[in-house]
């Protein structure tokens, strides 16, 4: 077992105040605090070499949980072990086998080329010349860093910088990798490249990866398993496919026709969208075969596609699930 989280809690004391002059003045003398439960009784385990997507709406407690796993924050109660270490003890041995990448914060030194940051990390992680060169060569090849290494970081694009961030975080070959929004703000093409890199890296090195992302593409491409939390509580932990089936009892049936007959589609199923030459219907899972057969029989169908509803929709449903009850 690589990561074990057991009944984890984290509370923050937050200073609350209303807007306005009077209250600003009042808060100088008397402050009101509110306890916020950022993470609430969270338990899960992750196997070595697994990639797990860690999902939840903004403010759900993902980043807080991840920071506790990385040893930055002390839990209010509960226990964490990662590869046998207790993160908040901040042991050097632990830090040498894990890495944290945050899409929103940079560890690269701004005014000078990324190579300089790599060299600083080499000294800090005590990487010997041989393994450093070997790892760097591999990362340079995989991430296509060659032309970037000697340009000042400030002149790199966001995508180029993110690739260098990943390289900087992986030089010491961590066994556990925490990725917090690694693709945020990147264009589709670069997102795709970063994803492919993460997938490859995980396959090659059996690195345990916990990933948060707002892009469902990241999650569907990388993670078989997801952990979903909201308001700091666990909502779902399991297979992504099972989640889809459980939450959305229908599939999307895309029917391509040369000309759309002017008729009501409601007899077949709920209409999702109608475009030029294409109708998309929502059909309950158990009726898919029957409806497809009927459509094929009754219309000169060009093409017929059966799809799962988009991940965004599934996740939105997942977030709503428990907040009712």
């Amino acid at each position: 077992m690589s990561i074990v989280v057991d009944h984890l809690n984290k509370q923050f004391k937050v200073h609350v105040r209303q807007a306005g002059w009077l209250d600003a003045f009042r808060s100088i003398f008397k402050r009101e605090y509110q306890i916020v439960e950022a993470v609430n009784n969270l338990s899960f385990t992750i196997q070595s070499g697994e990639i797990v997507g860690f999902l939840g709406p903004n403010g759900a407690g993902k980043t807080t949980a991840m920071k506790m796993l990385a040893g930055l924050l002390h839990p209010t109660s509960g226990a964490i072990t990662v590869e046998g270490f207790i993160p908040q003890e901040q042991k050097a041995e632990y830090k040498k086998m894990m890495s944290l990448v945050m899409g929103q914060k940079s560890q690269l030194i701004w005014d000078i080329p990324p190579m300089e940051t790599f060299l600083v990390n080499k000294a800090i992680y005590e990487i010997d010349d041989n393994s450093f060169n070997k790892t760097l060569d591999e990362l340079v090849a995989l991430l296509e860093l060659e032309p970037l290494l000697n340009k000042p970081t400030r002149s790199l694009s966001l995508g180029q910088r993110m690739k260098c961030e990943l390289a900087a975080a992986l030089l010491h070959r961590p066994k556990v990798l925490f990725l917090d929004e690694p693709t945020i703000g990147l264009d589709v093409d670069t997102q795709e490249k970063v994803r492919r890199f993460i997938a490859n890296y995980n396959r090659e090195h059996k690195t345990t990866i916990l990933l948060t992302s707002h892009y469902m593409g990241d999650v569907t491409a990388l993670c078989k398993r997801v952990i979903i939390i909201n308001h700091g509580k666990l909502l779902y932990d399991g297979d992504l496919d099972v989640l889809t089936e459980k939450l959305t009892p229908y599939k999307l049936l895309e029917v391509h026709l040369p000309t759309l007959p002017n008729q009501s589609w409601e007899t077949y199923g709920e209409v999702d969208s109608i475009e030029e030459g294409k109708v998309t219907l929502r059909i309950p899972r158990e009726r898919i075969r029957e409806v497809s057969a009927r459509l094929l029989q009754e219309f000169p169908v060009h093409d017929l596609n059966i799809q799962d509803p988009p991940m965004e929709e599934v996740i939105t449903l997942a977030f709503q699930e428990k907040s009712h009850g």
């Binding site: 920071k67 990385a70 040893g71 930055l72 901040q90 050097a92 041995e93 830090k95 040498k96 894990m98 890495s99 944290l100 945050m102 914060k105 560890q107 990390n121 800090i124 992680y125 005590e126």
Partner: peptide, 13 residues
């Protein structure tokens, strides 16, 4: 304030 201490704290130094 900006949370860049995060990176420093994850380093074995």
């Amino acid at each position: 304030r900006k949370g860049t201490l995060d990176y420093i704290l994850t380093k074995p130094v």
